[in-house]
Each structure stands twice: as structure tokens, then as C-alpha cells.
Design a binder for these strands. Structure first.
Lengths: 251, 251
DNA sequence: CCGATTTTGTTCTCACGTTCACAAGCTCCT
DNA sequence: AGGAGCTTGTGAACGTGAGAACAAAATCGG
């Protein structure tokens, strides 16, 4: 079963272009590992080597790579440069993607100054904010511009990716306006659930959620048997006598 | 994966303290949605309401909540305050967790100033860096201290969570020293795969990986039929004649 | 007090993702 | 040339997660 999802009863249909989402999320990790190996002068690496560098197990790595094609050589391994190029191409970072950052607070500043913007493949074309006090300020080698210009900027630079680093409040409106302007991928750092129309991809980076997940596991470690187990209110049917339920507005 | 796995072949065994990881990752989202509803004066909400606010479907939400216990009322819904407390307790944010931030560059600054530190439940007890030029600098209402003091700080404040915002280079060493000092949960912003011993949890936040995932989908949207499909090198067995393979050191 | 209505909690099924295990294929040594 | 030794690519088993669907419980109106 090469790629080519099942569905069709006929022949395997070559590369029916269907890479599992879980695999897509790991490809950038492999890409980074390959770049590191390349920088160390390593020309060839086995799936075991690569897996170690990427922090996964080798079976998973091999299966992931098999969705892209047969780029390895049995008995030998993978050519680092060649595989690196193939993954970069598959991800789409052999071309440059124009990015705008909206919300130039602490985090926006930090991202704007993030040299190299992680890996190559992305180009920040504008820093935007709605605060008149910020507009015109220089950040790195760019100047903060008025978010009101978003339409023009997106069209002029063919921007497809928007990064939202505003507070939670304005995030949905910023998102709506980005989408209206033509942005079709959004990376959201604001602590809210954004809703977008079909066809627009959205990903979320959320510090406090990550911390809470860690806290959950941490509690298990220390607590385990020492947990208070708290009231728990064995039956608790009536939903009555709660400590401090606010107003009485029903849903 | 966490402790307390199933193992036992017997009956369903009540609430054997095993909440699926996927559910754990969503609980903070529900908690935030409940807080928002609570702030709006809503006292009761159905699974449908909650699901909408959290951006998931109601069946999934109900199943997730069912792992915690039966905290709803059939025909009515969930009491917002009560459920909020139960989830907060399950996650472990009814107590305060001491956190250190290591690496006070742009991102470290941004996180240090992140008011409220997302949601309550976390307390930054120290900002650390190894750069003598930074040590002593004031950031918000705290002062940057020497990373060399990590052992003392972890012990004095019972720090269990460390946030790494250093560049990739020193990240693994910082991680090792955090672990050696007694930190058992790590949130890593550095673009490297960190390895930690068993018993230590680690989570990763990685801007460039998120962007690359977006780029992949973006490429599919615009390209689809316009993709170059590139060389692809039909057979390519010998791994020979590659454009620019670096040194010749084998693995 | 009873039936209609609402909404939860749970069961069942299907899809997705991970891991194992091994045949296929390549290189190298004799 | 032939066999030994590696390493990939993949088929199959297994485990986890998502979604549909429904029975069980609670409220409310008559």
C-alpha cells in the first residue's frame, strides 16, 4: 500500500497525495535534524541515526518517510542532502512565504526579532498594529504599520500567512479582517478559540495551555496517593448550595 | 503512558485514574471557556454551548467530561462554576506551581511580562540567565539572577516547572541542569529536541514548526495542480551526482 | 401524578496512528 | 560470482481517539 489511500478499487494510483496529518507535523522536525547532520558534515544517515536526532523511533520515521517516496537506499541509509531537499520541497519551504505579524506587544517584538525566523522559507513583510502610539516605531529593520492597511499589504505582497500576537480581545476581529484580506493560514498566539471559514487553516500556540498540561502530570507525580481527593460531593445532584455562583442568567 | 495504565484484565474498574492524553490537552480549553462564560454571568451551560465556546463538537466534550465524573445534570446542563472548579482541580491549578524562566532574551522578556501568566495557577519565582550583562537587570518587578544559582532556587521555592527560552545551543545543558536541580516538568521554546530521563515531562513550543505545517497545507491549496513536481529522479539508486553534498564523512 | 421534552453519560463502530516484524534489495568481502 | 550482513520499505496487529446514536435521568406543563 504505497501512498494512494484506498478508496479506489482500481490500481494503486501512484502518489495520490495524502500524507497523514501526524506525519506532516513531524516532517519539520526531520528537516531540522537533517540540517544539523548536514552542518556536521554527515553525508549519510540510517533511519536509526535520524530517529535519534529527531527524538522518535526508527520505525515511525521510516513509515513517515515512505509517504514521500522511496528516498533511501537499503543496506545504506539516506543521503542527508538529498532527503533534506525532498522534505523541504514536500513541506513547501523551498519557496518563500510572505508573513505578517499583527500585534506588536512584547511577544510581537520577540517574534519580529527572531533572527532567521526559525528556518528559512518565511519572510516577514509587515509588522502591524492598530495602536497609533506604536505605528511608525522601528523594530529591528522594519517599521510598524497601521493594521488598517492590511488589504493593500496582503495584495501587494501576496501574503498567505498571518501571525496574531494581539491580546485575546481583538483577536477574532483581527482574524476576520486577515481572512477578508485574503490570508488563508493563521498562527494564533492569543488565548482564544478563533473561528475561521472553511479553507482557512489555523494553528494555535498557547503558553498557558501547555503549562496546565504539565501541571496535570506534575500533580500526578507528587500527589498520586497524597491527593486530597477533595469534597468530590458523592451524589451532588441538585446543583444547589454552591459556594459562589454568579448571576442567575440561564443559558 | 502516564502511570496507572490499564494493565488489569478485569472489569472496567471505576475511575482508574486514567484520563486519555488527548482529553487532558483539551481540559485547559474547557477551563478557559467556562471562565469566559462565568465572567459573562452565565450560570448554566449545555454541552452544546460549551462545545461551541471551546471549538469542539458536543459529543467529544461530553465524553471528555465523563472521564472526570458525572458533573452535569441531564435535561439541564452543567453548572458553570461547579464544573470550572472540578476541572481546575483535576488539572491541578487550584494550587500554585512555582516556575522559573531560563534565558532572558526577547522571548524570555515577553513571557516574564505576560501578565497573569496566562491563567492563574502559576507563579514565576525566578528569571535566570548566564550572561553577566543581563544578571541584575530588572524585568517587570523581578530581577534577573544567575543561572548558577538554579540548585538553591529550585530547592528554596520547590520549583517543579522550568521554561527554557535560550537559543538552541545551550538548551540541552540548561535542561540537564534543571533536571539535576530537581525540576520535573519542562516547557521548551528552543528549536531543538531535548532528551530527558524518565519521570520528567517535556513539552515543546516551536514557532518554525508551526509555520512549516501551515506552509505545507498552503502549498496544497495554491499548488494542487500547479506544483512543479520537480526532478523526482525516477530511479535514483546510486545516490550519486547530487548537487552539493557536503563532506564525505559517513555515519 | 404522568407524559413530553431536554440533555447527559455511555456504548458501539470506524478511522487514524503506532509499533512490530520481516521480506526485498543493496553493498561489500571473499 | 556468490554469500553474508545491513537497512529500508511495508504488511499486519494493536492501541487510541472521534463521532453517531441512544438509553437513562432530570425538569416542566397539564
Amino acid at each position: 500500500m504505497t501512498r494512494a489511500s484506498s478508496r479506489r478499487p482500481g490500481p494503486p494510483t501512484r502518489t495520490e497525495r495524502g500524507i497523514p496529518e501526524a506525519t506532516v507535523a513531524r516532517l519539520p522536525v526531520y528537516l531540522r535534524a537533517l540540517t544539523a547532520l548536514s552542518d556536521s558534515g554527515i553525508a549519510t544517515a540510517s533511519s536509526e541515526d535520524l530517529a535519534t536526532a529527531a527524538g522518535v523511533n526508527s520505525a515511525k520515521l521510516r513509515k513517515d518517510l515512505s509517504y514521500l517516496g522511496s528516498y533511501g537506499t537499503r543496506g545504506v541509509g539516506y543521503d542527508v542532502e538529498y532527503l533534506r531537499y525532498q522534505i523541504a520541497r514536500e513541506i513547501g519551504v523551498t519557496q518563500d512565504w510572505a508573513v505578517v505579524i499583527v500585534g506588536i506587544g512584547n511577544l510581537g517584538h520577540a517574534l519580529a526579532n527572531y533572527s532567521g525566523f526559525g528556518t528559512r522559507g518565511f519572510r516577514i513583510v509587515a509588522l502591524l498594529d492598530a495602536d497609533p502610539n506604536l505605528i511608525g516605531e522601528r523594530v529591528g529593520d522594519m517599521e510598524v504599520r497601521d493594521f488598517a492597511q492590511i488589504e493593500d499589504i496582503v495584495k501587494a505582497d501576496r501574503v498567505s500567512i498571518g501571525v496574531i500576537t494581539t491580546p485575546a480581545g481583538p483577536a477574532q476581529e483581527v482574524c476576520d479582517r486577515l481572512v477578508a484580506a485574503g490570508v488563508t493560514s493563521i498562527l494564533n498566539f492569543a488565548p482564544v478559540v478563533l473561528s475561521v471559514p472553511d479553507g482557512v487553516d489555523i494553528r494555535k500556540v498557547d503558553l498557558s495551555i501547555e503549562l496546565q498540561i504539565l501541571a496535570y502530570h506534575e500533580q500526578r507525580k507528587s500527589g498520586e496517593a497524597a491527593l486530597p481527593e477533595v469534597p468530590e460531593l458523592p451524589a451532588m445532584n441538585g446543583l444547589t448550595d454552591l459556594p459562589s455562583v454568579g448571576g442567575g442568567v440561564g443559558a
